[in-house]
Write a protein that binds this DNA or RNA. Structure first.
Lengths: 236, 236
DNA sequence: GCCCACGACGGCACTGAGTGCACTCTCGGG
DNA sequence: CCCGAGAGTGCACTCAGTGCCGTCGTGGGC
């Protein structure tokens, strides 16, 4: 437990963290809905009004660092030079979220159990995830401005990236945060990249002869091809 | 205005519809957050307690028919014989939602304006849409049970279908519900079908020989392989 | 050293959503 | 004529969230 993250970047022990700690202790031992804001502030030893100074709602205390993570993501997307491969870029942006979860595995797992059980928290998490998806989609819309169905492709790809990310993240959270999450994440995001295949080419200085491909029928779906490749390469 | 839909299927003038009508009149003329439940029940001429008999929350009155539509969708998905093409099936299921919106264009447009302006309603709509997405994903998970990354593919495809659907639906709603919505919907869903192309055209059960892959060097990075495949297939 | 402004914190009272309970009214059946 | 059930209502209560104001500590200007 304990988020060890200074709320605004300075080095205060910060009452904000005390509220998060108190809240999670109560949420875990008696449930989210059975815990009132008065209980939290009583345990933290602060005034009730101060709670709402730091968290606009009771739900927000469950996601204390998503606001900063969303800012990081938008900054990351805005920092690009503009000639990166767009799909790869949003996949890398999604990895930022995984990294935030991986920084505090036990905290992330506890929160996962909470959101899984409480419908109100699930609904709130959706609105959080939706903002990430919008950030990705807005970036792709800018990059795809010249394409024919640019906004459609942007929305669909952003949704696919988020879904793949969530799939890998949840399976990692279900396994109590054990093991390396990034491997499954790479696998999941590779599926999306292959489906919407914007040539995943970075700064490549490898010779083209290292790969020889023969495809017998051009009508085959791309995911089938990738599946075949992966089994040929001996991957899971 | 007026939802003309009998709440439970029988022919009552039903107090439920009166509440929806009264609520939307007030929402449109003075805003959602400026309207209290007491205002609604006063206009409808019923007791306050009766409102919560029909709608578990104030937000629910904005989406009076989604519960039934979700039931229709799950029934549609369960009604299949099991040999339909899965991606096409979920696309058809998504079209059911569009049909519900198209049945009451003016009502749908009014609701769209509301949800666009009020953050609380946007968040609630997300949880509604999420349930559709889960229904589609669960169906695909069953159909993809034998595949290697079945649940991953199911989640990603479901998200992509919902995103494409929402993209087409929103552009139709933005244009005041004019024109034929199904054409844009077909176009959007065709994009998803082509990306995850489970046989876009016929009901062909693919033989494994449709893909033959030869890789000359096993150390090659996956993106190089995909790049080669794409150029071989003649894609962008 | 003194004072004042400012910002963080706390207390209080209020609105409004949502709930549990008990009551009435109506209707259909024995 | 009575009775039981279900729909609707009124009432009182909890709790999230807000506006307002008072308090306290701190730091800077004089």
């Amino acid at each position: 437990m304990s988020s060890d993250k200074a709320g605004t970047g300075n080095g205060k022990p910060s009452m904000r963290d005390a509220l998060v700690t108190a809240a999670f202790r109560l949420f875990l031992e008696r449930g989210y809905e059975q815990t009132t804001v008065d209980d939290i502030v009583a345990l933290a030893g602060v005034g009730r009004r101060s709670f709402f100074r730091y968290f606009p709602s009771k739900e927000d205390v469950v996601f204390p660092d998503h606001e900063r993570c969303l800012a990081d993501m938008t900054a990351f997307l805005a920092a690009g030079t503009g000639d990166e491969e767009p799909v790869r870029r949003v996949c890398d942006a999604a990895r930022l979220v995984l990294r935030m979860y991986a920084e505090n595995p036990t905290f992330s797992v506890q929160r996962y159990r909470l959101t899984k059980k409480v419908p109100g928290l699930r609904a709130y998490e959706l609105s959080v995830v939706w903002r990430y998806e919008r950030a990705l989609a807005d970036y792709l819309r800018r990059r795809f401005a010249a394409r024919r169905d640019g906004t459609l492709q942007a929305d669909v790809i952003a949704a696919a990236v988020v879904a793949a990310h969530n799939n890998a993240l949840r399976s990692w959270l279900r396994s109590h945060g054990q093991g390396e999450a990034s491997a499954a994440m790479d696998h999941a995001l590779a599926y999306v990249q292959s489906a919407f295949g914007d040539a995943p080419a970075p700064a490549a200085q490898e010779q083209p002869e290292d790969v020889v491909v023969v495809v017998s029928r051009r009508g085959a779906p791309l995911w089938r091809v990738v599946q075949e490749i992966e089994s040929t390469l001996g991957r899971a």
